[in-house]
Design a protein around this nucleic acid. Structure first.
Length: 386
DNA sequence: TCTGGGGTCCTAGGACCC
DNA sequence: TCTGGGGTCCTAGGACCC
């Protein structure tokens, strides 16, 4: 059996726990500071009750509820809380998996009283952090996750062989992880509506419809010892940043300044994680709804130097067949990550450059992120955009 | 003058090698 | 008158998750 813990309205609940003024009020957490030019990253239950959902443009949320409280997201707080919850859960000395920032799984095979365990966990989390969690208990991970969503917030749902079918019949199939999109709709066109319809299909049916993912889904649904197959805590495979401009721009210097800024942000995170990257990705998109242009290239030498990543982006941009006249959003990301190879022969210039970057990182750490940065980045300020 | 930002995984097709 | 079969690596693009 697996016990799945899903935090309720995680980011919003943390903000309410920190700031008592926000308690019991409809609140949204936006993914950036500009409250009118972003989307809802998390909504408190008071806001959810009014029909506000995450992913919704904030302008729409404010139309629904003009006196909505707004807080810009601060990832650091949420990551910190998530890590503290993980530490707390370790005290039960059960096999534990960190599923995402607000989800945790425990292997409770042979546990004498799962329901009491779930109650204890809820109580400890609430007592320590003043936020609530919903818990699902089921024979495998995917069903436990599904179960955790059935009684939200602060609910506990146990799926047993006896009640499994009746629960599955009541839950629409897009609630199942991986089916909340085109694939879910595809199943609906095949006449399937509930999770039970899916559960009762044979493996070849899912494989024909979804390929490898279909087989994985079948195995996950019917697994009995899934914990052994859980993903281990893994290193990042890519690191990237993207930005949407308030309006589309056709000024090359402005776009290049933004590419440089994003490249510097990515490079800094690479250095913080002691990583270098060989593959650089650049994507540019035109006015919303129009075409994207993206490209990636792999180099022999890995780098975590913002200037180098920027130059690589320019190469990719130059190579692209699809030159966009107007740019609305852009992103830079790096993959093919490895730890720096210090034993490789370093040229004097590369060594000096490394020392320079290290010094800049230290200064920015001490005096703030925007103490030293490449001059071109000043052009990314919107007042420079004609 | 409506729609963010961080990721992962999979597939198809091309280039290239033996 | 002719061109198999196996493999790897890379890129573009799609789907999905939180």
């Amino acid at each position: 059996m697996i016990l799945h813990i899903d935090m309720d309205a995680f980011f919003a609940s943390i903000e309410q726990a920190i700031n008592p003024r926000l308690k019991n009020k409809p609140l949204i957490v936006g993914s950036r500071a500009n409250r009118l030019h972003t989307v809802v990253c998390a909504a408190s239950y008071e806001a959810k009750r009014l029909g506000i959902k995450s992913g919704m443009p904030t302008q729409e949320a404010f139309r629904i509820c003009p006196h909505l409280e707004f807080v810009p997201a601060e990832q650091g707080k949420y990551i910190w809380t998530s890590e503290q919850i993980l530490e707390l859960l370790k005290r039960w000395e059960l096999r534990l998996n960190y599923a995402s920032i607000d989800e945790f799984q425990m292997d409770i095979e042979n546990h004498p009283d799962p329901l009491k365990l779930a109650c204890d966990i809820q109580e400890r989390i609430k007592g320590t952090f003043a936020i609530t969690a919903s818990i699902g208990i089921a024979p495998n991970c995917i069903l436990a996750k599904l179960a955790s969503k059935i009684n939200k917030p602060c609910g506990i749902t146990v799926l047993t062989p006896d009640n499994l079918m009746s629960y599955l019949q009541k839950i629409p199939l897009n609630k199942l992880c991986g089916l909340n999109g085109i694939t879910g709709e595809l199943f609906v066109t095949k006449g399937m509506r509930s999770c039970l319809d899916l559960y009762q299909k044979p493996s070849y049916f899912l494989k024909n419809l979804m390929g490898k993912n279909g087989l994985t889904l079948y195995q996950a649904l019917h697994a009995t010892e899934s914990f052994a197959n859980l993903p281990k805590e893994s290193k990042p495979k890519s690191i990237g940043h993207s930005y949407t401009l308030p309006r589309a721009s056709k000024t090359p210097q402005f776009i290049m300044a933004w590419i440089r800024l994003l490249a510097e942000m990515v490079a800094r995170r690479l250095r913080e994680n002691n990583l270098e990257s060989k593959t650089t990705h650049l994507w540019l998109s035109g006015p919303l709804g129009s075409k994207n242009s993206q490209g990636q290239m792999t180099w022999q030498n890995a780098t975590n130097d913002g200037q180098e990543i920027y130059l690589r982006c320019l190469r990719i941009k130059l190579k692209s067949k699809n030159q966009l006249p107007m740019i609305r959003a852009l992103g830079v990301s790096c993959s093919n990550l490895n730890q720096p190879q210090y034993d490789s022969p370093l040229f004097l210039e590369a060594k000096r450059r490394e020392g320079l970057l290290e010094a800049i990182d230290k200064i920015n750490y001490k005096f703030g992120d925007d103490t030293i940065y490449p001059a071109i980045i000043t052009l990314a300020s919107h007042k420079h955009e004609p």
